[in-house]
């Protein structure tokens, strides 16, 4: 375990961090009274009112449309960060190239919008 001397503190931290939740669960199990087994013990807690339905629900299919569009445009911005960080070194040509990149992304966004992918219907 201590093969990597630089990481000793990390491993000790990891050990402590994994012990704490185990301790928390075992202490509560140890201290809790054992005789209150009702049907309501296993229901999910919904702010004190009667729970409606199961906790595992299937999400509506419309969420996925937004999720798909979001994933694409979210991840493509990863290319803009390195460019923004070294904006002063790169000069005009990189600026034009980034503009072309953003232009193509905007075309994609307009396409998704015109085809109705962004409408909640």
């Amino acid at each position: 375990m201590f093969l990597l001397p630089k990481y000793n503190s990390f491993f000790i931290f990891l050990l402590l961090a994994s012990v704490i939740p185990i301790l928390a669960f075992s202490i509560s199990k140890f201290l809790a009274p054992n005789n209150t087994q009702g049907p309501e013990k296993l229901t999910s807690y919904e702010s004190g009112i009667e729970p409606m339905g199961d906790a595992w629900i299937q999400f509506q299919i419309r969420y996925y449309m937004f999720a798909l569009v979001f994933v694409i445009f979210d991840v493509e911005t990863v290319f803009l960060y390195p460019w923004a960080m070294s904006f002063n070194d790169l000069g005009l040509s990189a600026f034009i190239e980034a503009l072309v990149f953003v232009f193509i992304l905007i075309i994609g966004l307009v396409y998704a919008w015109r085809k109705g992918a962004l409408e909640w219907s």
Binding site: Y64, L68, V71, I72, F79
Partner: peptide
């Protein structure tokens, strides 16, 4: 980026 595109197409 490409893995995200692939995941989007897969979904």
């Amino acid at each position: 980026a490409i893995a995200a595109a692939e995941a989007a197409i897969g979904l």
